[in-house]
Every structure is written in C-alpha cells, then in structure tokens.
C-alpha cells in the first residue's frame, strides 16, 4: 500500500517473473516507474549502447587464434569509422582497397579452395565477438578437423556487416562460408552473436541464401548447442550443395508453444489442469 514512508506501490504478481525475462511487476510511484526500475533500465540501455560503440580488439582475437595454431588475416570494410558504418550499411558490406589487395595475396598463396571459411566480424556488438567467437570456434573446429574438413584462414573484419563475408568467401574459394558477427544488441542481450552460413559464397547473395543461428551467448543459445546445430547445417549444406530457405534447420527447432510450461496459460481455468 502507498504510505508516506514508501510511496512505491509494489505489484503482488512478482512471482510471475520466473516465467519471462520481460520487465513485469515493476511496481509504481504514482503511475510512473519507481527509481530502482528506472535506473535498472538506464543501465541496460547504457550497456547495449556501449556494446555498439566498443571497438573490436582484433589484436586480441588474432592472438587467441594464433595460440590455437590458427592462421588469421586482418581486414577492414569500406566504412572508415563507426559513425559512417551506422549511416552507410552498404559500405560495411564491402572491403576497403587495402583489404581487397591483402585478400588477393592471401588467396593466391592459398591456391586451391577450402571446404569452409570462418569470418569473424564485429557487426553491431564487438562484445559479442570478444565473449563468444573463440569459445564457439573451440567447440566446432576440432570436430571439423577430425572429420577431414579443410578449414581456411580466419579473416577478422572491422566495421563489417554480414554480406561482407560473400566477397571474402568468393576470393578464398570457400565451398561454404560461416560469418560470426555481433548482432544488434538488445536491452537484455548486449553480447549476442549471430552465425550466418552460405553455400557457394559470392557477391550478390541475399538473406534468402543464408541460414542463421541467432542469440549465441552464455545466457542464450549455448556455444555447445550452437556448434551442434552449426555442424548439422555444415554437413547438410555440403551434402546437398545448397543453403538458405531450402535448407531447414534441425527438427528439434520446433518452437515450444502448445501447452508447454509448468503452468501453461494460467489466466484460464483449464490452463492449470
């Protein structure tokens, strides 16, 4: 109840918070958000904003790859800085002149094509890369090596968008391209990694040609589970020589809808049955 000592009215349905990450039962000061809930929101927004503007530590990523005996190559998109990157998505989809030359050299040295190239790109959250890229690779690369997959060098792209992988994969003559990229940060998920797979990458591919795994992070789709799904997509993509809308994800992806949850729709008498 409202009183002079504490003008915040709590909501007696806070027990429902265990069913959703939504910001329910926040209580109210008058009709407005209480100070605690207001500042919790401000912090989440600040963290998401910081994730957008945090620079990719490409040196650290390269060093971690090197420590695992993996070769990397440092590339930069045609967007010179974050401000231009945000305003000009087209520039984030292609390499700058230096990087094109660098990649041409590397492709020449590589000679024949490879089975798969993994591209690491900052996208909209470098934090997603710092926290998830290496752990995911640690789950998938050893498996692929023992299964005989030829894995190419790993480009690390600054100011990159998903489609920049098409140019890279095409030049490195990759049969399959996998882009690991920081997703647009949500308020509760500033560290979410996206994984995009394309068979036969070349400039001009569209979203319809790609398969996507989203929300890869410790509190979301775990590294091990993501690696399991990615392995499935890689094998199917190679076997059927395609990717995108005609390559469906694993059958265990059916969303949990019908009568699921311990309490289902508790708003109805039958829901609790």
């Amino acid at each position: 109840m409202t009183d002079r000592a504490n003008p915040v009215v709590a909501n007696p349905w806070s027990s429902l918070r265990r069913f959703t990450d939504a910001r329910i039962a926040l209580g109210r000061a008058g009709s407005s958000l209480p100070t605690e809930a207001h500042l919790a929101f401000q912090l989440a927004h600040a963290q998401a904003r910081d994730a957008v503007h945090l620079p990719l530590d490409a040196d650290a990523v390269a060093a971690q790859l090197h420590a695992r005996g993996l070769e990397s190559v440092r590339l930069h998109s045609a967007a010179p800085d974050r401000l231009i990157y945000l305003k000009r998505p087209d520039l984030g989809r292609r390499l700058n002149d230096n990087s094109q030359a660098l990649l041409a050299d590397r492709a020449g040295a590589l000679g024949a094509g490879v089975d798969v190239v993994f591209v690491i790109a900052d996208g909209l959250s470098a934090r997603a890369i710092h926290e998830n890229a290496i752990p995911l690779l640690d789950c998938i690369l050893p498996e692929l090596s023992s299964a005989g997959w030829r894995v190419g060098p790993i480009p690390i792209v600054t100011q990159g968008r998903v489609a920049i992988g098409d140019e890279i994969g095409e030049r490195l003559k990759a049969e399959i391209l996998v882009v690991l990229i920081g997703e647009r940060p949500g308020l509760s998920s500033p560290d979410s990694l996206g994984v995009y797979l394309t068979h036969g990458p070349r400039v001009g591919k569209t979203d319809a040609d790609r398969n996507c795994l989203s929300n890869v992070r410790v509190a979301g789709l775990s590294h091990a589970t993501a690696a399991h799904k990615l392995r499935y997509l890689l094998e199917e993509s190679r076997r059927r020589a395609l990717s995108g809308v005609s390559l469906k994800e694993d059958a265990d992806e059916v969303p949990r809808v019908v009568g699921a949850g311990e309490a289902a729709n508790f708003l109805l008498p039958t829901g609790a049955a």
Partner: peptide, 21 residues
C-alpha cells in the same frame, strides 16, 4: 504487446496480466 522470444504461453500470459492490471 506481450511478446516472448519462444512464444511461451506462460510468459505471454504473465505479460498480458501485467498489461491489463
């Protein structure tokens, strides 16, 4: 707008109750 990332009915019902109240 009681959205839930996996369409979980309990999570959706919780947001509907919050909104109506």
């Amino acid at each position: 707008q009681p959205n839930h990332p996996t369409d979980d009915p309990t999570g959706i019902a919780a947001a509907i109750l919050d909104g109506l109240l």
